[in-house]
Simulated scan of single mutants.
Amino acid sequence: MPKALAFDVFGTVVDWRSSIIAELEKFGRRHGVDGDWPAMADRWRSGYAPAMHRVRTGELPWTRIDDLHRMILDELLAAAGISSLSEDDLDHLNRAWHRLDPWPDSVEGLTRLKNKFVITTLSNGNVSLLTNMAKRAGLPWDCVISAELFGHYKPDPEAYLGCADLLGLRPEELMLVAAHPSDLRAARGVGLQTAFVYRPREYGPDQPPPRLDDGEFDFTATDFLDLADQLGT
């Protein structure tokens, strides 16, 4: 049994897609702009991994997720022909990622899990983003740990091992909880325990189920309440 649980956040704890679509719709109404907001939300998110890869390979210096999100947003708005926005308007829209709503089970499930385990984020989101998100959404973290603290984005080993080290744990005493098999496989590769939580609507209603090998992860759960049941809390 682990001593602490570290949670991926985007998609695992919070529903980024519905939240960003809603923020873009409000932006469009405020500025009198029409757009395919679900498609823009998907493109904004799909730019995330390539942008991080540029940092991980050294093409870009260390750059916070807030700043990577802004780079992607500027490109999307330019491509859509949306201009003449103030810096305050652009900053507010970019900080939509600080205002993501949790999945319906997240707060209750995390609260139950916190009764037995230390619970923390382990996200590529920067510390200020994760802190603001938690404050707004009522996420009951014991601490907020970000890849920013290590200067390495997941799936670099330094992020997983750094999290364990900050908590004073051996890697095998820490369990990563995530909705993304690739994240879990990277964590497992450096000795962490793993729990997969299925979020079937992260990418919209037509999302195919992920391919998992039988018994690939230590736990497989339908949501955080199911995971709490399995972990006895």
Score class of each variant (00 low, 15 high):
A137C: 07
P50F: 13
F224L: 15
P38Y: 08
N126F: 10
S19R: 13
Q207N: 05
P200L: 08
R170I: 02
R64P: 06
D165F: 08
S182M: 08
L113S: 07
A22R: 11
P208L: 09
M1S: 13
L93I: 11
P205M: 14
L24F: 15
S128F: 14
T233W: 01
F10D: 08
A187C: 06
K26L: 11
P102L: 00
A51N: 11
S128E: 15
R56I: 11
G11C: 07
D229I: 00
L227M: 08
G109D: 03
N94H: 03
R170M: 11
T63Q: 12
A96Q: 03
G138W: 05
L227K: 02
F219R: 01
G125S: 03
W103V: 00
D206L: 13
L192H: 02
E25I: 15
D67K: 09
L231N: 04
R17Q: 10
E75H: 12
G81W: 07
G215H: 12
R45Y: 10
Q207C: 10
V197C: 02
V13T: 11
R17A: 03
E216I: 05
H98S: 14
F219Y: 15
P38F: 09
G138V: 09
L169Y: 01
T233I: 15
V14P: 08
G232L: 01
V107G: 10
A137M: 11
H98Q: 08
L227N: 06
A137F: 15
A137G: 12
